[in-house]
């Protein structure tokens, strides 16, 4: 049993790394309760919950960005679910010339830095004379949301082994019945997971959004603007907690869903 225990120094380093990564998140929570509103003073001079009330009642400027972010995330997720699933189905079932190259093209948006995606989309919109709107933001987000859904779906398609689809046909099911009774139930949790991840990614996206949004701002961009203004700063932290919950919980759920799914989908061997 020699490699069972790692050396103490390594453990400390790993633990330190984790702290470094996650302590700032705790600070965000802490500052939502501070009594001091102009600068982030540590330790906070006092604790209060009044900023939650302020955010809810006195700050109507929060709501339009929040609605816009939810709307953009919802539309791009739905688009990604449809297009990503079809794309995965095609890629995992068909063998054709240039298939690997097309797979690469599909995956590219997530590998490309956001600035590149944003710049290219912005110049494309300019060339085609498309005015900036909610839809240009949606288009920008859909580029990487599709990849997320595609990745989840393609992994599940691979595990599904043509076997059960053939078994379904063998037992007398036509292709619609096979889709409805075999493919969809087995793909369901992968799509749910992919959809949640896509939603979370779209909800807090900043870079592509700055390039593709006109005068509107989404919630993350509103937050960025708020932080430079020395007024009711803790309200931003309150909103951050909401964003954290809105993005982290779906990701956590997605993680557990796909993990459970692998046990059921991996069997049959």
């Amino acid at each position: 049993m020699r490699s069972d225990r790692s050396p103490l120094a390594l453990k400390l380093a790993a633990f330190g790394g984790l702290l470094f990564l996650h302590l700032p998140i705790l600070l965000i929570f802490l500052y939502a309760f501070t009594t001091e509103e102009r600068s982030y003073q540590f330790p906070p001079p006092g604790l209060t919950t009044k900023w939650f009330a302020v955010a809810w009642f006195d700050r109507p400027d929060i709501w339009p960005p929040l609605y816009l972010s939810l709307k953009v995330a919802a539309i791009s997720t739905v688009m990604a679910l449809i297009l990503g699933t079809f794309c995965a189905a095609a890629m995992s079932r068909a063998r054709f010339f240039g298939r690997d190259q097309i797979t690469l093209l599909v995956l590219l948006p997530i590998a490309l830095p956001g600035v590149i995606t944003g710049m290219s989309l912005r110049s494309a919109f300019g060339v085609m004379d498309i005015p900036f709107s909610t839809w240009t933001i949606v288009l920008g987000h859909a580029t990487f949301c599709i990849v997320i859904v595609y990745n989840n779906a393609v992994a599940r398609f691979r595990r599904l082994s043509g076997g059960i689809l053939e078994a379904s046909a063998d037992l007398g099911a036509n292709s619609f019945q096979t889709f409805r009774h075999v493919l969809l139930p087995n793909l369901g949790s992968a799509l749910l997971a992919g959809g949640m991840l896509a939603f979370a990614l779209s909800f807090d996206e900043v870079i592509v959004t700055t390039f593709t949004a006109g005068q509107q701002s989404t919630l993350p961009i509103w937050m960025l603007n708020e932080l430079v203004r020395p007024r009711q700063r803790p309200v931003t932290n309150v909103v951050a907690i909401v964003v954290f919950a809105a993005t982290f919980l779906p990701i956590l759920a997605a993680y557990y869903l796909t993990r459970g799914g692998s046990e059921t989908a991996g069997m049959g061997k």
Binding site: G163, E166, G172, N186, T264, G268
Partner: peptide, 25 residues
């Protein structure tokens, strides 16, 4: 009808629904 090499049972259905699949469709 075929008995497949890796059985190809439907992982999301219980045994009864697996067997009844051909009748269901």
């Amino acid at each position: 009808n075929t008995v497949f090499q890796d059985y190809a049972l439907f992982p999301h259905l219980n045994v009864r629904d697996n067997v009844a699949y051909g009748l269901m469709v």
